[in-house]
Design a protein around this nucleic acid. Structure first.
Lengths: 231, 231
DNA sequence: TTGTCTATAGTTAGAAA
DNA sequence: TTTTCTAACTATAGACA
C-alpha cells in the first residue's frame, strides 16, 4: 500500500509475497479480534498457506468449531440464498463501482459544459465548432444555471435588480444569447477546486452577473476565473 | 477509528454497534479478498451474528468447505501445537507490547539523564539533591556521552584539538567534574524533537564543547538549548 | 433507517539496519 | 533472515443528508 498504489494482483516475487502474507495475516487477525470484541459476535477465519500444512485459524480451534457447528446446521438452500459470499461481495462491488463511475461521468460532463458555457461567453466565435450533442448539453447546462440564478434572486432579495434579467429560464435555450455574448473580463480559476464544485452555480452565488460579467468577479468561495484555462 | 481513538471494548449502543459491524464486516471481507489474491492462498471467514441465523461466509460456501476439508484432515495434536490461534495471537501481542514499553522506558530514562547532565552542567548547586539511583544512571550517561565524544574525535579529525580533553572515558564517573562545572550560557531546546533524539549525543555531533560550553551552541540539527526547560 | 462524506486512526510496502 | 521505520496508503467513526 505504501509508497506505491498497489495493483491488487498476485505478487510474483516470493520474498515479497511472503512478507506481505505475514503482515496482512497479522492485520487480518487483529481486525477479526476487534470485530468480535467491539460487536460481541462470533467469527472465525482459516488461512491456508501452501507452505505450512497447518492453516492458521482464529480464534482457537474450538472457537472455529463452535462457529462451524452453527454454519453446518443451516440448510443448504438457505445458505446459498442469503449467504454473503464472495460472489455476492464481488458483484456488489462491481455494481457500486459502476454507479460511482456513472456519477463521476455525469459530474465531469456538467463541469465540461459549465466550462464551455463560460468559454462561449468569453469569445465571439467559439460557438461555431460545437456539435449537436455539445449544443444540447450546453443548453441544458444554461437552463440549469438560469434556474439557479432565479432561485438565488427569489431567496436573497437581490441588491442590484436592474442588472439581472431572465425570462422564465427559457429564453436562452440552444445557441441563443449566451453564445453571442462578449466578455472582456480576465478570469481566474482554481482547477483543483473545480473537481468539487459546479462552477456555474458558484459564480452565481458569488454575485457575478452572467449576462454582463464585470472585468473581474470572485466566485462564492473566493476563486476567480482565469481565461488561461478556457482555451 | 476516525475522529476519536477507539477504546476497543464492546459497543453498548445498539445502532452504533450494528453500524460498526456492517462497516467492519465489509472491510474484513475486502481484506481477505486482497490477501487471497495478493498471496495466492486459500482462506475463509465465517461471521456469525446473533440477529441473522445465517453466518456470513467468505468466499463461497464451497470455498469454505474446501478450506475446512484441509483443516479437518490435520490431526488434533498438531492443530493445537502449531496453530496460530487466538491465545497465541494475544500472548504475542502482550509480549510485543511489554517489549515496546521496556524500550520506551529505557529511552525515557536516557533522555532524563541527558537532561539532568546538562542541568548539572548549567548550575553549581543542583547536584546536591541527587539520590544514588540518579547518580549512577547519570554516571552511566556521562560515560556514554564521553565515549560518543571520543568516537567523534577519532572519526572526524577534530579541528579544535586543544579544547577537547578526555581521559579514556573513565575520569568523570560518579559525582565528579561535570557536576561541578559552571555554565553561564543560555540554552534553548525543542522539546518535540527531544522525543526522537538523544540530546547529549546530538550536542556532541554539533561541535559544542561539553566541558566548557560557549555562551550559545547549536545542536547538530539546528536546535539550541533553552534554560527554560531545564528548571 | 440507509447512504455519503471526510478527518483522522490504522495499515502496510518498501527501505534500511 | 528479521526488525524497525515511515511515507503513503486504506479504513472507519462521527456527522449529516
Amino acid at each position: 500500500m505504501a509508497r506505491k498504489k498497489l495493483d491488487r494482483t498476485y505478487i510474483a516475487n516470493d520474498s515479497k509475497r511472503n512478507a506481505t502474507l505475514k503482515k496482512r495475516r497479522n492485520g487480518l487477525m487483529k481486525k477479526i479480534n476487534e470485530l468480535t470484541t467491539l460487536c460481541g459476535i462470533e467469527a472465525c477465519a482459516i488461512i491456508s498457506t501452501p507452505d505450512d500444512l497447518q492453516p492458521e485459524v482464529w480464534p482457537s480451534h474450538s472457537g472455529v468449531q463452535r462457529v462451524l457447528y452453527k454454519f453446518s446446521r443451516i440448510p443448504e438452500m438457505e445458505k446459498s440464498k442469503k449467504m454473503f459470499n464472495q460472489e455476492n461481495f464481488l458483484s456488489q462491488s462491481i455494481i457500486k463501482a459502476r454507479e460511482q463511475l456513472r456519477k463521476l461521468r455525469n459530474e465531469n460532463r456538467k463541469k465540461e459544459m459549465s466550462l464551455l458555457m463560460f468559454k462561449c461567453l468569453s469569445s465571439e466565435n467559439s460557438a461555431n465548432n460545437l456539435n449537436m450533442t455539445n449544443l444540447s448539453d450546453l443548453s441544458w447546462m444554461i437552463d440549469l444555471t438560469l434556474k439557479e440564478i432565479e432561485q438565488n434572486i427569489t431567496r436573497n432579495q437581490p441588491q442590484q435588480d436592474a442588472l439581472v434579467t431572465t425570462n422564465g429560464g427559457e429564453a436562452m435555450k440552444g445557441e441563443n444569447a449566451p453564445l453571442d455574448s462578449h466578455v472582456q473580463g480576465t478570469m481566474q480559476i482554481n482547477m483543483d477546486a473545480m473537481q468539487k464544485q459546479n462552477l456555474a452555480m458558484d459564480s452565481m452565488n458569488g454575485g457575478g452577473n452572467l449576462m454582463f460579467p464585470t472585468r473581474e468577479f470572485g466566485l462564492s468561495n473566493g476563486m476567480v476565473w482565469n481565461e488561461h484555462y478556457l482555451h
